[in-house]
Protein backbone atom coordinates (compact mmCIF):
# COMPACT_ATOMS: atom_id res chain seq x y z
CA UNK A 1 0.00 0.00 0.00
CA UNK A 2 1.53 3.28 -1.07
CA UNK A 3 0.59 6.46 0.75
CA UNK A 4 2.75 9.30 -0.48
CA UNK A 5 3.85 12.19 1.69
CA UNK A 6 2.28 15.57 0.97
CA UNK A 7 5.52 17.06 -0.35
CA UNK A 8 5.90 14.16 -2.81
CA UNK A 9 2.38 14.73 -4.11
CA UNK A 10 3.01 18.47 -4.35
CA UNK A 11 6.20 17.84 -6.33
CA UNK A 12 4.24 15.61 -8.71
CA UNK A 13 1.58 18.30 -9.19
CA UNK A 14 4.22 20.96 -9.84
CA UNK A 15 5.89 18.75 -12.43
CA UNK A 16 2.60 18.66 -14.37
CA UNK A 17 0.73 15.67 -12.95
CA UNK A 18 -2.45 17.52 -12.02
CA UNK A 19 -4.38 14.36 -11.14
CA UNK A 20 -2.14 13.71 -8.11
CA UNK A 21 -3.75 16.72 -6.48
CA UNK A 22 -6.87 14.61 -5.95
CA UNK A 23 -5.00 12.70 -3.24
CA UNK A 24 -4.51 15.90 -1.26
CA UNK A 25 -8.16 16.84 -1.76
CA UNK A 26 -9.34 13.45 -0.54
CA UNK A 27 -7.01 13.52 2.42
CA UNK A 28 -8.03 16.95 3.68
CA UNK A 29 -11.57 17.44 2.33
CA UNK A 30 -13.30 16.58 5.64
CA UNK A 31 -11.23 18.95 7.77
CA UNK A 32 -11.31 21.80 5.26
CA UNK A 33 -15.07 21.53 4.66
CA UNK A 34 -15.56 21.51 8.43
CA UNK A 35 -13.42 24.65 8.80
CA UNK A 36 -15.57 26.38 6.18
CA UNK A 37 -18.71 25.01 7.82
CA UNK A 38 -17.78 26.70 11.09
CA UNK A 39 -17.96 30.04 9.25
CA UNK A 40 -20.76 29.49 6.76
CA UNK A 41 -23.01 27.46 9.11
CA UNK A 42 -24.41 25.81 6.01
CA UNK A 43 -22.99 22.62 4.53
CA UNK A 44 -23.81 23.43 0.90
CA UNK A 45 -22.06 26.80 1.15
CA UNK A 46 -19.23 25.14 3.07
CA UNK A 47 -18.61 22.73 0.18
CA UNK A 48 -18.67 25.61 -2.32
CA UNK A 49 -16.18 27.62 -0.27
CA UNK A 50 -14.01 24.52 0.26
CA UNK A 51 -13.94 23.98 -3.52
CA UNK A 52 -12.65 27.51 -3.90
CA UNK A 53 -10.07 26.82 -1.18
CA UNK A 54 -8.69 23.76 -3.00
CA UNK A 55 -8.69 25.64 -6.30
CA UNK A 56 -6.79 28.59 -4.78
CA UNK A 57 -4.34 26.23 -3.13
CA UNK A 58 -3.72 24.48 -6.45
CA UNK A 59 -3.16 27.77 -8.26
CA UNK A 60 -0.66 28.88 -5.61
CA UNK A 61 0.98 25.53 -5.03
CA UNK A 62 4.33 26.82 -6.28
CA UNK A 63 4.39 29.41 -3.47
CA UNK A 64 3.96 26.77 -0.76
CA UNK A 65 7.09 26.49 1.37
CA UNK A 66 7.73 22.94 2.44
CA UNK A 67 9.14 23.99 5.83
CA UNK A 68 5.55 24.21 7.09
CA UNK A 69 2.84 21.55 6.95
CA UNK A 70 0.59 21.55 3.90
CA UNK A 71 -2.51 21.31 6.07
CA UNK A 72 -1.54 24.44 8.06
CA UNK A 73 -1.16 26.37 4.81
CA UNK A 74 -4.46 25.00 3.48
CA UNK A 75 -6.19 25.86 6.77
CA UNK A 76 -5.09 29.50 6.51
CA UNK A 77 -6.45 29.69 2.96
CA UNK A 78 -9.72 28.14 4.17
CA UNK A 79 -10.12 30.71 6.97
CA UNK A 80 -9.38 33.65 4.65
CA UNK A 81 -11.68 32.35 1.91
CA UNK A 82 -14.48 31.75 4.41
CA UNK A 83 -14.11 35.28 5.80
CA UNK A 84 -14.17 36.70 2.26
CA UNK A 85 -17.27 34.67 1.56
CA UNK A 86 -19.03 36.05 4.65
CA UNK A 87 -18.03 39.61 3.79
CA UNK A 88 -19.21 39.31 0.20
CA UNK A 89 -22.45 37.79 1.38
CA UNK A 90 -22.95 40.73 3.70
CA UNK A 91 -22.17 43.12 0.89
CA UNK A 92 -24.82 41.47 -1.21
CA UNK A 93 -27.26 42.30 1.57
CA UNK A 94 -27.86 38.67 2.25
CA UNK A 95 -27.47 39.01 5.94
CA UNK A 96 -30.01 36.33 6.61
CA UNK A 97 -28.99 34.25 9.55
CA UNK A 98 -28.86 30.55 8.97
CA UNK A 99 -32.50 29.97 8.39
CA UNK A 100 -34.37 26.94 9.49
CA UNK A 101 -35.24 26.45 5.86
CA UNK A 102 -31.56 26.02 4.93
CA UNK A 103 -31.05 23.54 7.72
CA UNK A 104 -34.08 21.60 6.58
CA UNK A 105 -32.75 21.44 3.04
CA UNK A 106 -29.46 20.08 4.35
CA UNK A 107 -31.20 17.51 6.48
CA UNK A 108 -33.37 16.42 3.56
CA UNK A 109 -30.35 15.89 1.33
CA UNK A 110 -28.64 13.79 3.94
CA UNK A 111 -31.74 11.71 4.56
CA UNK A 112 -32.82 11.33 0.96
CA UNK A 113 -29.49 10.30 -0.50
CA UNK A 114 -27.39 8.72 2.22
CA UNK A 115 -25.35 6.88 -0.41
CA UNK A 116 -24.20 10.18 -1.90
CA UNK A 117 -22.70 11.44 1.36
CA UNK A 118 -20.02 10.46 3.83
CA UNK A 119 -21.22 10.61 7.40
CA UNK A 120 -18.22 10.28 9.66
CA UNK A 121 -20.04 10.44 12.97
CA UNK A 122 -21.19 6.88 12.32
CA UNK A 123 -17.54 5.78 12.18
CA UNK A 124 -16.22 7.46 15.34
CA UNK A 125 -16.64 4.40 17.49
CA UNK A 126 -14.78 2.19 15.05
CA UNK A 127 -11.55 4.17 15.17
CA UNK A 128 -10.68 4.17 18.86
CA UNK A 129 -10.23 0.37 19.07
CA UNK A 130 -7.93 0.56 16.05
CA UNK A 131 -5.83 3.24 17.73
CA UNK A 132 -5.70 1.13 20.89
CA UNK A 133 -4.48 -1.86 18.87
CA UNK A 134 -1.49 0.06 17.51
CA UNK A 135 1.89 -0.56 19.15
CA UNK A 136 2.73 2.20 21.64
CA UNK A 137 5.52 3.78 19.61
CA UNK A 138 3.33 4.02 16.50
CA UNK A 139 0.36 5.38 18.41
CA UNK A 140 2.54 8.05 20.00
CA UNK A 141 3.82 9.06 16.58
CA UNK A 142 0.29 9.31 15.15
CA UNK A 143 -0.78 11.42 18.11
CA UNK A 144 2.20 13.74 17.87
CA UNK A 145 2.12 14.20 14.10
CA UNK A 146 -1.56 14.05 13.21
CA UNK A 147 -3.24 15.41 16.34
CA UNK A 148 -0.73 17.63 18.12
CA UNK A 149 0.61 18.86 14.78
CA UNK A 150 4.33 18.33 15.49
CA UNK A 151 6.75 18.36 12.56
CA UNK A 152 9.09 15.45 11.75
CA UNK A 153 11.97 17.45 13.13
CA UNK A 154 10.22 18.21 16.41
CA UNK A 155 9.20 14.56 16.85
CA UNK A 156 12.73 13.45 16.06
CA UNK A 157 14.11 15.73 18.80
CA UNK A 158 11.40 14.89 21.30
CA UNK A 159 11.74 11.11 20.92
CA UNK A 160 15.48 11.16 20.14
CA UNK A 161 15.10 9.11 16.98
CA UNK A 162 16.30 9.95 13.44
CA UNK A 163 13.89 11.73 11.09
CA UNK A 164 14.05 8.76 8.70
CA UNK A 165 12.77 6.49 11.47
CA UNK A 166 9.97 8.94 12.27
CA UNK A 167 8.92 8.91 8.63
CA UNK A 168 9.03 5.15 8.24
CA UNK A 169 7.20 4.46 11.51
CA UNK A 170 4.51 6.99 10.67
CA UNK A 171 4.13 5.39 7.28
CA UNK A 172 3.71 1.99 8.93
CA UNK A 173 1.23 3.35 11.48
CA UNK A 174 -0.88 4.97 8.76
CA UNK A 175 -0.91 1.82 6.67
CA UNK A 176 -2.01 -0.28 9.64
CA UNK A 177 -4.80 2.15 10.49
CA UNK A 178 -6.00 2.37 6.88
CA UNK A 179 -6.10 -1.37 6.26
CA UNK A 180 -7.86 -2.07 9.60
CA UNK A 181 -10.31 0.79 9.03
CA UNK A 182 -11.13 -0.50 5.55
CA UNK A 183 -11.58 -4.04 6.83
CA UNK A 184 -13.93 -3.00 9.66
CA UNK A 185 -15.99 -0.61 7.55
CA UNK A 186 -16.08 -2.82 4.44
CA UNK A 187 -14.41 -0.22 2.29
CA UNK A 188 -12.73 -1.83 -0.67
Amino acid sequence: MIIKEDDEIIAECLSGNTDSYKYLVEKYQFRIINTCYKYTKNIIDAEDVAQEVFLKAYQNLSTFKSDSKFYSWLYRIAVNTSLNYINSKEKRNEKETISEENCLIDMNISKDNPRDYYQLNELINTLQPLMDNLPDDLRTLIELYEIKDFTYDEISKKLSIPIGTVRSRLHRARNMLISDFKRINDEE
Binding site: I3, E26, F30, Y118, L120, L123, L127, M131, I142, F181
Partner: peptide, 9 residues
Protein backbone atom coordinates in the same frame (compact mmCIF):
# COMPACT_ATOMS: atom_id res chain seq x y z
CA UNK B 1 -9.84 6.58 4.12
CA UNK B 2 -6.83 8.40 5.59
CA UNK B 3 -8.83 11.64 5.32
CA UNK B 4 -11.66 10.09 7.31
CA UNK B 5 -9.23 8.81 9.95
CA UNK B 6 -7.60 12.23 10.28
CA UNK B 7 -11.00 13.91 10.51
CA UNK B 8 -12.18 11.55 13.24
CA UNK B 9 -8.86 11.66 15.16
Amino acid sequence: VLGKILGIL
